[in-house]
């Protein structure tokens, strides 16, 4: 088994007085795609936000390569290589595509490395190269998703947290996005994937967790979960 990159132990998080996570524990190993599934409000996004430091954990611990990061500021956690692509993509509208990518590598000092990564992103997403001087607000939804992922790659992630990359995209683009996720993983990127579309996610994932009401209800390898009756009933909309 490969080493553990990210380990989350019993985290509890609150929004004001409302408790969103009731002790979530999960593990992401190097080179894996781990899927985090569950219905709306199950705590998937909150789990990612707690890992990346946008939401403070009230209890529990998050470790990156064995070192606790729970109490660090969000920008410090990002610097350490936990790169979170939030739900809704959040490309910076008002800045060009190229500037968005450059800011993804804000913490990278070496100009040579930055240039190399930019070339890599342009190779992966030729559309971004074509549109590099355009304002990010002019991109379509699918292109914005490419930009959001490209920007995360500029950073050089130890682990990539992807929140609903397929949300709001046309069916063909959903398949494209999943292909990109798979391809990234094949080039060595470790991914924690939050996805509504459990069927697609489990096809890619090495391992999966199912959240319900802020707790892990089920876990197992991609195949195990895909075969599980309860999952089929609840998330895959009956028999395939």
């Amino acid at each position: 088994m490969s080493e553990t990159v990210l380990s989350v132990r019993d985290i509890e998080s609150f929004y004001g007085k409302i408790q969103a996570l009731h002790g979530v524990t999960l593990e992401v190993r190097k080179g894996q795609i781990v899927a985090l599934l569950g219905s709306n409000g199950a705590g998937k996004t909150t789990t990612l936000k707690t890992i990346s430091g946008l939401v403070r954990a009230a209890a529990g611990e998050v470790q990156l390569q064995g070192k606790p990061i729970t109490s660090l500021a969000a920008h410090t956690i990002a610097r350490l290589g936990v790169v979170h692509v939030p739900e809704g993509r959040h490309v910076l509208k008002g800045l060009s595509v190229k500037e968005n990518l450059e800011l993804g590598a804000f913490t990278v000092r070496d100009a040579h490395v930055r240039a190399e990564r930019m070339a890599h992103v342009f190779e992966l997403f030729p559309r971004m190269a074509e549109r590099r001087h355009q304002d990010a607000s002019l991109l379509s939804g699918g292109e914005q998703q490419m930009l959001a992922i490209g920007r995360a790659l500029m950073h050089g992630p130890e682990v990539l947290l992807l929140d609903e990359p397929s949300m709001g995209l046309a069916p063909k683009l959903v398949t494209d996005t999943m292909r990109i996720v798979k391809r990234l993983n094949e080039t060595g990127v470790t991914i924690l994937l939050v996805e509504q579309n459990a069927r697609l996610a489990l096809r890619l994932a090495h391992y999966g967790y199912v959240l319900e009401n802020g707790q892990v209800r089920m876990q197992g390898s991609g195949e195990e979960l895909r075969a599980d009756e309860r999952i089929i009933q609840a998330y895959l909309g009956g028999a395939e």
Partner: peptide, 24 residues
């Protein structure tokens, strides 16, 4: 400059800036 671009980015989306490692 990177800081100048970060300044424009902060005026647009602070949380996203944090996620990119920018000390807002």
């Amino acid at each position: 400059t990177m800081y100048g671009k970060a300044m424009r980015a902060v005026s647009l989306d602070k949380d996203m800036c944090r996620l990119m490692g920018i000390n807002v």
